[in-house]
Design a protein around this nucleic acid. Structure first.
Length: 458
RNA sequence: GUGCCUCUAGCUCAAUCGGCAGAGCGCCGGCCUGUGGAGCCGGAUGUUACGGGUUCGAGCCCCGUGAGGCACCCCA
């Protein structure tokens, strides 16, 4: 086949809108962050779960309300109607319905994996993206809700964030808005949809939006006054208790939140990180109790994750009616913000040491040394093109982010030594050949300590 | 799925009224070097996102497609 024919037949390489390739440098960061999240989930005693990416369409349909149009669906070769999972919560509900007898309740699981939505892509919004969820099924305890907040706190601080906030609200507060403003319940969705934009368009914008949807000015002002209340959690709770005294369901919700904040503090959430935020809006068709979302200032991607209690969902898939609560961390948004802030470390290669082979030297001793390093637990690679001179090998290591280069050329062999050089520090050290592995292992752990103490690389 | 904006070298950006496609950084090749990040010499930087149209002539104007972004919608 000639090149011309080849070019004509070859399709333009491309990826679909909202889908992405992850090159090694990006994958290292993704794996770094998912490892942090996995560590947090497991530290709180959540067990891993995985489920198929495809589900029968009837499992996915009807549980996701308005977003059904965002479902990727197709007919498979056997004529079955199939959908790609839209979130990780529906699969959890299905697992609980199918395996209820095998699960110990409360069932605590975490699940990290891709989900698909045929949405219009934007910054931090993709058609294929990862969610990292932790949920508890089978308890109504507010401790479980507080645990969700505590997990968020541990996850975000574990990733290096310091300026995050976890906003907390309650379904009962949201549903109380309409009666509080003297409006019929049917206006609740309109009110919630509007106050959800408070951050973006401000109080005046929210008021305009409400009025544009037929809410009387007085009622809009009343709602805005309530959701605009700020202060310490105790202050806001007290004020809302007063304002919503006539609405028993709201009182119960506020009581939940009072406990939640106490529990969260005891679970290690620092003062000011879990904030009662009455303007936090979450979908009404889903959540039944406490709800929360995480924010970082100037993130530009909306919330980094959300969660809450959904006591009525599990039963809808045919299993026992079980209460549930949980969180979802948006890996992509986390990474967008981390990348923008230069927090996405882990720029080093997976390779810890390159074993150099000098030009015209025998490659076998280098291969043997690499083998020893690997047996010693060091991720090592060996120069694959020994015609490259030593400087080119340095440059290869530098460019790839390999921190160490190990040289055991003819000079070292004659002296019975190895030379270990740290690329960035330009630090040469000579060790006896038979101590190469232990010496490098020692240098690596020394370096890791240094990185932890001082994340700024030279 | 709707509306609007954007797309020039690997990256960041230029290109007067429609008149020869440019800079910096990076990259590639050669030479040299058992201890470097360089030097010297040389080179490509390119289907101006893609496909059409108008024009003597299109990076620039028009239409379509794709991708990215913003706002809806919704959400991670």
């Amino acid at each position: 086949m000639s090149n011309e024919q080849n070019n004509q037949k070859r399709p333009n390489p491309r990826v679909l809108s909202g889908f992405r390739d992850f090159l090694p440098a990006q994958m290292r960061v993704r794996q770094h962050v998912t490892a942090i999240l996995r560590g947090v989930f497991e530290r709180f005693g959540y067990e891993p779960l995985d489920t198929p990416t495809l589900e029968a369409i009837e499992v996915l349909q009807g549980k996701i309300g308005q977003d059904e149009k965002l479902l990727y669906r197709f007919t498979d070769l056997g004529g079955r109607e199939v959908g790609m999972r839209y979130d990780l919560t529906i699969p959890l509900a299905r697992v609980v319905a199918m395996h209820a007898n095998d699960l110990v309740l409360p069932f605590k699981r975490y699940h990290m994996g891709p989900v698909w939505r045929a949405d219009r892509p934007q910054r931090g919004r993709f058609r294929e993206f990862w969610q990292c969820d932790a949920d508890v099924v089978g308890t109504k305890s507010v401790i479980a809700d507080a645990e969700g907040v505590a997990i968020y706190n541990a996850a975000l601080s574990g990733c290096g964030f310091t300026d995050y906030a976890i906003r907390v609200n309650h379904r009962a507060v949201l549903t109380a808005l309409a009666p509080y403003a003297g409006l019929p319940e049917t206006d609740a969705v309109t009110l919630i949809r509007a106050i959800d934009k408070l951050d973006k368009i401000g109080p005046e914008g929210v008021k305009d939006e409400m009025m544009a949807h037929g809410i009387p000015e007085k009622a809009a002002e009343r709602v805005l006054e309530l959701v605009g209340i700020t202060g310490s959690n105790d202050t806001v709770l007290a004020k809302l208790n007063g304002l919503l005294a006539e609405i028993p369901a709201a009182q119960a919700g506020l009581d939940d939140l009072a406990h939640l904040f106490d529990y969260a503090a005891a679970l290690g959430v620092p003062e000011g990180k879990a904030v009662f935020f009455p303007a936090l809006a979450r979908g009404l068709d889903y959540y039944t109790g406490p709800v929360y979302e995480t924010y970082v200032p100037e993130g530009g991607v909306g919330s980094l994750g959300g969660g809450g209690r959904y006591d009525n969902l599990i039963g809808t898939l045919g299993g026992r009616d079980l209460p549930a609560t949980g969180i979802s961390v948006g890996l992509e948004r986390l990474l967008v913000v981390m990348e923008e802030r230069g927090m996405a470390g882990a720029t080093e290669s997976v390779t810890q040491a390159l074993v150099a082979i000098l030009p015209n030297d025998d490659p076998l001793p280098a291969l043997q040394l690499a083998t020893e390093l690997r047996i010693g637990g060091i991720r090592a690679e060996v120069t694959l093109d020994p015609k490259r001179n030593l400087m080119q090998q340095f440059q290869y290591a530098e460019r790839k982010g390999i921190p160490w280069i190990v040289i055991a050329g003819s000079n070292e062999r004659a002296a019975g030594t190895v030379t270990i050089r740290h690329l960035a520090f330009r630090d040469d050290r000579t060790y006896p050949r038979d101590q190469a592995v232990s010496a490098l292992n020692h240098l690596i752990s020394e370096w890791n300590t240094h990185v932890e103490v001082n994340p700024q690389k030279p």
